[in-house]
């Protein structure tokens, strides 16, 4: 177990190093200048030079990469040249919003997906099951930005039950939650589909196993048994999906954050790419990559605990 974790940590470090090298090289090739992008005609040559020096763009890629890592090890990702704010602070400001959005959507997915899956498994091959199967696939396949746009059409133009734009007024928890509901629902849809299908499959598998038939004949109450089994069996795939979901956090939130104008990791990196704000792009990418790798590791470990049949280190993802 320990050596497994060590191995994962080493490969995590390698992934991060490679990512930063990749990004640093890219920054040297990508056309576009941060000073000009933001200032347009106001960017004087002196100003451009100053911003380049502050961003460290005048150094060689090698110097940039080593410098970045030395600082990163101290928890310092650099400073945003334009506002003078530490990049770690910028990230910490928006990270919770993305995390809350993801968590809320996964919670919604659990609340909706598991009951749907149980229903399908207990009514296999009925019309209800068929409809749910199609619904699940549609949920999984329809792109999140299409759902987001449609919801924007519905809730902002016609049906004004939920506010959908922005985070809500700050310091107002209730307002924050109200603003969270629709974006979280949009993000949750595909996970609802996944969960419903996973729960159905794993549950049907158990139901077909013979020992249940045996126990049934011994007269144990049908329903109690079913639900105990159902929940227990739903747990493992759920945890796996939750792990993947948390890890893929950013992939989902980019569009939802843009369409609903929410601050978050997605909007932060998009804006940084557009403005050519290289230090911010690097810092945010590093955090995203770290987050992804650790979420996966965590999901793996929890999975092993839950299901002794899986041996750690042998799962290949």
């Amino acid at each position: 177990m320990f050596s497994y974790i060590l191995k994962r940590v080493v490969s995590t470090a390698l992934v991060c190093i490679l990512l930063i090298i990749f990004l640093s090289l890219l920054i040297h090739i990508v056309p576009g200048d941060p000073a000009k992008t933001i200032l347009g005609p106001r960017a004087t040559p002196e100003l451009i030079e100053k911003i380049h020096t502050e961003m460290g763009l005048d150094k060689t890629p090698f110097q940039q990469i080593t410098g970045f890592f030395l600082n990163a090890l101290h928890g310092d990702l650099g400073t945003d040249v334009f506002t003078g704010r530490p990049i770690t602070e910028m990230i910490m400001d928006v990270f919770p919003h993305s995390l809350i959005l993801t968590t809320a959507s996964l919670l919604l997915a659990v609340l909706l997906g598991i009951p749907l899956g149980i229903f399908s498994a207990t009514h296999p091959n009925t019309i209800g099951d068929r409809i749910l199967a199609f619904l699940s696939i549609s949920f999984i396949t329809i792109p999140s930005y299409v759902v987001a746009l449609i919801f924007l059409l519905i809730f902002s133009a016609h049906l004004r039950i939920f506010p959908v734009i922005g985070l809500g007024s700050s310091g107002n928890v209730g307002d924050y939650i109200m603003h969270l509901i629709i974006p979280a629902l949009v993000l949750s849809l595909s996970w609802v589909g996944y969960l419903a299908r996973l729960v159905r499959t794993s549950l049907l598998e158990v139901l077909n196993e013979t020992y249940i038939t045996a126990e049934r004949s011994m007269g144990i109450k049908n329903r109690t048994l079913l639900f105990r089994l159902a929940l227990k069996n739903a747990l493992i795939p759920t945890v796996a999906v939750l792990g993947v979901g948390l890890g893929k956090m950013l992939a989902g939130t980019v569009f939802v954050e843009i369409i609903f104008s929410r601050p978050g990791m997605g909007t932060l990196i998009m804006k940084a790419i557009q403005n050519r704000n290289y230090p911010v792009v690097q810092g945010v990418s590093l955090i995203i990559a770290l987050w992804f790798v650790f979420a996966n590791l965590l999901a793996d470990i929890i999975n092993t605990r839950l299901d002794p049949r899986i041996q750690i280190g042998k799962t290949e993802r």
């Binding site: 924007l152 902002s156 004004r160 506010p163 959908v164 734009i165 922005g166 007024s169 843009i258 609903f260 104008s261």
Partner: peptide, 15 residues
């Protein structure tokens, strides 16, 4: 509020 559409909604909602 970076996006115009969003701003218009916020205005109508009194935000």
């Amino acid at each position: 509020i970076s996006d115009n559409q969003s701003a218009e909604i916020a205005l109508q909602a009194g935000e």
